[in-house]
């Protein structure tokens, strides 16, 4: 039985979040198993199952080059900018 990763979008939620994994022999059973295991408490409005080996993950050894450069560009954040007194709706 293959391993599948399960993603659930909550009722009222905006995006699918990873909740765990299950085993199943095919996509139909994977969907049903995921529904049974992960949505018993009314959490879900939508469900994705993805074969685990279809997931391409970033290599932790590359974390520095992939994610560090984004850290020092504060000008991408609105808080970097001083809004002068008296200016509204900015």
């Amino acid at each position: 039985m293959a391993l599948w990763e399960v993603f659930v979008r909550a009722r009222g939620g905006l995006h699918h979040a990873h909740v765990g994994s299950i085993h199943a022999t095919d996509a139909e059973m994977a969907l049903e198993n995921a529904r049974d295991v992960f949505t018993r408490r009314g959490e879900a409005a939508s469900l994705w199952v993805v074969p685990s080996d279809a997931i391409v993950a970033s290599d932790p050894a590359d974390a520095d080059e992939l994610f560090e450069p984004a850290m020092d560009k504060e000008y991408r954040h609105p808080t970097y900018y001083e809004v002068p007194d008296g200016v509204a709706n900015l």
């Binding site: 391993l3 765990g20 994994s21 299950i22 295991v37 018993r40």
Partner: peptide
């Protein structure tokens, strides 16, 4: 029944974590 079913589910989460 709901409780025993949860236990099967917990086993599944934990096996997945160990995997």
């Amino acid at each position: 029944l709901a409780k025993v079913q949860d236990e099967a589910g917990h086993g599944l989460y934990l096996y997945a974590a160990a995997e």
